[in-house]
Design a protein around this nucleic acid. Sequence first.
DNA 1: GGCACTTCGTCCAGTCACTGAACATAATCG
DNA 2: CGATTATGTTCAGTGACTGGACGAAGTGCC
Lengths: 417, 417
Amino acid sequence: MLWHGARVDVTRQEDLRARNSAALLARVAGAVDPPSRAALAVATGLTRTTVSALVDQMVAAGLLEEVSPPGPTRGRPAQRLRLSGRRVAGLGVEVGVRHLAAGVADLTGATRALRVVPGDQRGLPPDVVLGRAADLADAVARDAAGQGLEVVGAAWGLPGLVDAGAGVVRLAPNLGWRDVHVAADLDRRGGPASAAGRPVLENEAALAAVAEAWRPGPAGADGAAPQSFLLVSGEVGIGAGVVVGGRLLRGAHGWGGELGHVGVDPSGPVCGCGATGCLEVYAGQDAVLAAAGLDPDVSSAAEGGGAGAALAAAARSGDARALEALAGAGRALGVAASSAVNVLDVDAVVLGGVYAPLVPWLGPPLAAGLVRRVLRARVHPVEVRAARRGTDAVVLGGAARVLQGALERPGHLLAGP
Amino acid sequence: MLWHGARVDVTRQEDLRARNSAALLARVAGAVDPPSRAALAVATGLTRTTVSALVDQMVAAGLLEEVSPPGPTRGRPAQRLRLSGRRVAGLGVEVGVRHLAAGVADLTGATRALRVVPGDQRGLPPDVVLGRAADLADAVARDAAGQGLEVVGAAWGLPGLVDAGAGVVRLAPNLGWRDVHVAADLDRRGGPASAAGRPVLENEAALAAVAEAWRPGPAGADGAAPQSFLLVSGEVGIGAGVVVGGRLLRGAHGWGGELGHVGVDPSGPVCGCGATGCLEVYAGQDAVLAAAGLDPDVSSAAEGGGAGAALAAAARSGDARALEALAGAGRALGVAASSAVNVLDVDAVVLGGVYAPLVPWLGPPLAAGLVRRVLRARVHPVEVRAARRGTDAVVLGGAARVLQGALERPGHLLAGP
DNA sequence: GGCACTTCGTCCAGTCACTGAACATAATCG
DNA sequence: CGATTATGTTCAGTGACTGGACGAAGTGCC
């Protein structure tokens, strides 16, 4: 064998239409402003004849729509095209340690349904948790159906090592799960959300990264560049998702991004995982709260934004312990993120989850660590920034992942609504 | 914009043949034993008619050949197919810190030409080094041409951060290079090796990883599985290449795999890069030699295998300092590789370069570190093994990279030799 | 207001690649 | 030696893209 990774799928003549439709959809989605059929023809190299035929089919199918007045032009005015939000939608579900959530988004990126149920899931039997989450998913699926949307798939974000192929959560330490057969359980339950087909299982930080990479609507001129970043999602544990060239890196099994157990100092304290000096020991939510002298249960308390908001408030008020705790966490993040960036080569470290509101304090020591320890920082800087999405990141990332899959393989969507 | 990473290329009708030819080539290359036209038709879903047409063209073009005796069968005996080594070849060049090398390999994986020139390149002006390397490349290109081979491209492996798009070595600390315009320099020189088109520039560890992933010839039943590994290439510095699903991970710019500067202990000694406690400080060739009490110049001395062989000899003889030095290096590798594997999710850590002969001593502490620190090791073990290729890994990886590109886009090769 | 001009989108015959069934080929088996 | 079995090839047919011609829908100038 030469390279097992080589693209190996044949293209039948009947697939050509779908493939080229997908290419056009990607162009429309990635365009700086809505393109016309003629512009698409020039950009792709297809003839205007072909583009028209494909576009007409996609407009009829409810994937694209014509946007009205283009303003004064020389020559016949163009009918500009954009993605349509009227038909296709994706469903995302988040099984968090401290809450459940489900939502539906359409192709324009609009959130068309969203439901969140707070509540600690630790210690509950997995099938109880999955039942509640499935009910939530069914509820938003019904919400979407009521708006005339067709849910083309569901993606579930779970805090652990997920075997997507088998549909099993292999290990989720913070939930206390081991080898939970999620896909089979959901399949047994049925319901509206399952009607869209086999659910996609993914690590929650990976879906948050997909959400961060998702830029619905016309891209600003800057947004057109391919994105690459490490999204660090601080929750009860610390996870990460990696996007390179706009695409999620999944590793061999989708078990990458375990930044929480990257070594910061091997002679450091013992981590819950059994090793020593993992990042979680220094920058995990509970560790930072403890170091700051705050109540570790602040996050499960009232809806005030949880641990992130509490720490940010303390830091803003000048609390010395909080400031020192955040500086320490930032330094630890700097060491761990530097290791990751040295290996991965990404252009940015994005702080999400509880870290997002703490960027003013975590960012500087983190950035300093990157400058000092990342070789490629001498050639090209590594940006540090807060995630654009908040608590809905995982759910929207799930929806985005579903929609991305649908747009790349639009074959069965072309028939019409 | 939605996802800039989405596959965006349209497929013209004239591209269909080339695409499907590529799919067939990949099947032939990846087959457990040489497949017939009929078997390819079943495997791909194309009709026997189409497969025959495409295969005939590729046989005429010298990409495939029929392998003679199939042994007794029921029914008409099949004409089995395999990649042909008679026409297409790739050229790989290595600019190492302590040697230059160039080689040519054909589609069967056979090395058809190889030339190595030892010699320390540090302190020499880049254009002198490039001139010598280009001469070497021209020499093997002529060797290949003399055998009737058509060199379809060249890939250069360089020990540093390479900007492949611009054709520039941005930073190569161990050579003392900064912003060296390699592609432009080579283009100015011309010569037989340049005739194949613009050279591909890549980090040397990345090419070594490509070589490790390259399994020419019929795959054993086991070899059919997609490969994922981190190849750690210990030389003057420590680099790494990552392969997931059989494909090289390049990161945003091809600057990943800098394992040498992954943090092992931030309170450790200062590294040449300015940071503290990098892996190179603990497991770099010079550091290990010094800890073992061996002459740091052993590697540049006579051809005895260099530092790896010297350390292996000392360890085999029971030298306590050498054993302790290797154990320490193995532990440091364990910490750094654990960080990398936690982030990347690969199934194996492969030790190459000077590390390859030291696996008996480096392997156990490294494996112990992985078991202890890598979360996914509780679900799926992480293998530790020595690289299959020796000093020719970078050169063969370069040739493989060129051939891989040619087979994935066989359009212009289909015309015939 | 009319006419030239520009650009957009559509129509239509033509080419090319894959399909599917029938046919020819080349071995083994009884 | 003929039946059987599986491979590979021939040939008309379908479908998707091509490219030039044409109609459509605006602006700008006289």
